[in-house]
Design a protein around this nucleic acid. Sequence first.
DNA 1: ATATTTGTGATTGATTGCAATCATTTATTG
DNA 2: CAATAAATGATTGCAATCAATCACAAATAT
Lengths: 257, 257
Amino acid sequence: MLAEERRSRLLELVRLRGFASLPELAEEMQVSKATIRRDLDQLEEAGSAKRTHGGVFYAGDRPQLPHFEERQPEQWDKKRRIAEVAATLIEDGDTVLLDGGTTTYEVARLLVGRTLQVVTNSLPVANLFASNVDTDLVLVGGYVYPRTGVMLGPYANEMLGSLGVRRTVLSVGGVTERGYYNSNLLLVQTEQAMMQASDEVIVVADSTKFGRQSLAHLCELDAIDHLVVDNEITEDWRSKVVAAGVELHMAGETDNG
Amino acid sequence: MLAEERRSRLLELVRLRGFASLPELAEEMQVSKATIRRDLDQLEEAGSAKRTHGGVFYAGDRPQLPHFEERQPEQWDKKRRIAEVAATLIEDGDTVLLDGGTTTYEVARLLVGRTLQVVTNSLPVANLFASNVDTDLVLVGGYVYPRTGVMLGPYANEMLGSLGVRRTVLSVGGVTERGYYNSNLLLVQTEQAMMQASDEVIVVADSTKFGRQSLAHLCELDAIDHLVVDNEITEDWRSKVVAAGVELHMAGETDNG
DNA sequence: ATATTTGTGATTGATTGCAATCATTTATTG
DNA sequence: CAATAAATGATTGCAATCAATCACAAATAT
């Protein structure tokens, strides 16, 4: 085996595994640890990998969704608590439609392994379920909005027009007295098609979204069935939501509403 | 910050990053390295992470596609060479349809960053392009076949029926005198819809596929435009393909075509 | 409130890993 | 083919990291 070929193979192994230890690579390649170190030095110089004490991890191009991944850590504690409550609203055997928001993603993570039919227009959500044999997964096709991994547009809307689901979980970008908002006009159209396809709509939103304006109006306050929010929502917003006839579920230390 | 909360945050960081070094975790959490070690001991006991010298990598549940990932390393050298030749058949500005085969995936990897419109029914392929601003990506929706991340079935076929693309790249499971085969009946129907939607069909297949039977007949030998194969294809198969009027592209040390 | 349990940071000897070096082997070039 | 360059494995002293331990701090229980 040529040195160049071995380095190419090493890079592929590291790319597939994410992390590989130096002794195991030496064993697999049937060369000494010193040789592997030298190979890894070269991969590190090329920027493909990063050496660690006793190992190496992949540092080259990794498909990622910057917009999605930047927003995932925001208010993570709140999102996680909201997701735990929202997941209790889903019943085994449901057909559930999950949108591409980061709070919805936390819900999705908790649904993996449950006996469900999942429909989604989100690549990250789809990736969660694709390997899972307990879940039937249907992906809504369409134009993939750059950096978010969300499918929207006419193909998506047409497919949603011929689907029916029990429950939809939607994230929102903002809530005002006039209703729920997201930042993208095309996305909102696709989300409206989701609501049409659904018996019940569950909105998941952390408290920082309340009183925050966003570009595109999704629907009125009363057009949804359930709202799950963390316990830092104000009393004022709580009463507005309840007055709109929405079932309010609070996530956190206090009693759930 | 409570110890339990810190450990939960650590797990999330490790999950997001794949690998994290102990000094950087200690710095971010504002605790000593000794404390981080103890935390990581607990994560390792729980099976969520694996300690390394000076660091930790994520070892918990990771969405994966076993069927796809098991087959990816097979004949990797051949696939890679085939992909390099196939990528030269794609022109910038093309609309190209990529199926869910592992050889097609290697082609896809080489197309990232090119100015293209990409249509695909494969989650792994979609994940490659979703973050890329040079590429317009359209995902074919439908039922996600378990463990492969490939969308197929009536929704997929209907969407393909309303699309037109310049070139399609297809992997196959087997080639006999009677033509090209894949292992799944539903998948073959979706792939036939892909061929119908395309001006030109490019099949990518490593030489081990020739003379190998597979369940579902895709099309006759002459129904495609280009075949890209590694240089270990036999002279017998070469002449059969050429006699069928297919443009043969050989990948490897010898002269192409 | 006090008593008990759990968690933390620092220290120290033990363990793991590393890079420089050199003799030898392998690959490449003319 | 011989000459040259590149690569390899082993050795050795050095560097980095570790786990056990202890005194103290923080959290929890009564």
